[in-house]
Computed example of a mutant assay.
Amino acid sequence: MGNCFAGELGPALSSLSRFHRLHVAIFGLDFAGKTSLLYRLKLGENVRTLPTVGFNTERLQLQLTPSRQCVPFHFWDVGGQDKLRPLWRSYARGADALIFVVDSADPERFEEARAELLRVVRLPRAQEVPLLVFANKQDLPQSVGAVKLEKILGLSEFGTGMAWHMQAVSADTGRGLHEGLARLHEMIMKRRKGARRQRRKWFPC
């Protein structure tokens, strides 16, 4: 699993992929590993990065499971420093899904991460789109497991109206990245299917 070349998409999907690209905004505190995760997806290797000033953007074709076709994504990785967090609102607007990255080896910042995550899900229309939480740096011995971190962040308090998934990952090894994105893709498709059913209900042919 990994990146796909245009020829691997098949002629129909390849020609139309740019019109069906899924827009995903990536948020999280500074030093959580957002950019490292993005470049692990792009290059398939660990890349040392500097704190993002502004944003990074990448358009990637990813094969999430061996049996599936490639999925076209447009990722927006937004800086996590205090002064940049007000920008998250703009990048969340119009996104098909949100990703929030947490440094699972830095317990001193869990409360800060929880507070910022709550702000994200309270953004206008944010609860209408799926949320994927990456518990990053699981390769480190002091990291907190995804199940425990899920409770610390209070994900169960979001209610049934928001689709979310917690995934243990490592930007260093690539562990869990494609599995998490596969779940995110499933949630996006389920939401779209539900929206189509709702439209047919209110506007029958």
Rank of each mutant, 00 (worst) to 15 (best):
Q69Y: 03
A135H: 06
H74R: 14
G154W: 08
T35P: 00
L29V: 01
K137I: 05
L9P: 08
R59I: 03
H20F: 12
Q198H: 00
L98H: 14
G44T: 13
L98S: 14
M189Y: 02
G145I: 10
L140T: 09
V101T: 02
D30F: 00
A135L: 10
Y39A: 08
V71D: 03
A126F: 08
I188H: 15
F27R: 03
C4W: 06
P11M: 11
L149Y: 10
R192Q: 15
W76K: 10
L62D: 07
A113W: 10
K148I: 06
L60I: 09
G10P: 08
V71M: 07
H20G: 04
K151N: 11
P130M: 07
A92Q: 11
G2H: 02
D77G: 00
D30V: 00
L16F: 15
A168M: 12
R125P: 11
G161Q: 15
T52D: 01
W164G: 10
C205P: 13
E186G: 04
F158W: 13
S143A: 10
H20V: 14
K151W: 05
E112T: 13
G180T: 04
P86K: 07
V24P: 02
K34Q: 09
L177D: 06
F100M: 04
M189N: 07
P107W: 15
I188K: 11
E8I: 13
F203P: 01
F110K: 08
L177P: 04
N136E: 04
F100E: 01
D106W: 06
E116G: 03
A182D: 04
L29P: 01
L22M: 10
N3R: 11
R109G: 05
L140W: 08
G44S: 08
P72L: 12
W88C: 00
L41H: 07
T65K: 14
A135I: 06
L123Q: 12
G10A: 05
L118V: 15
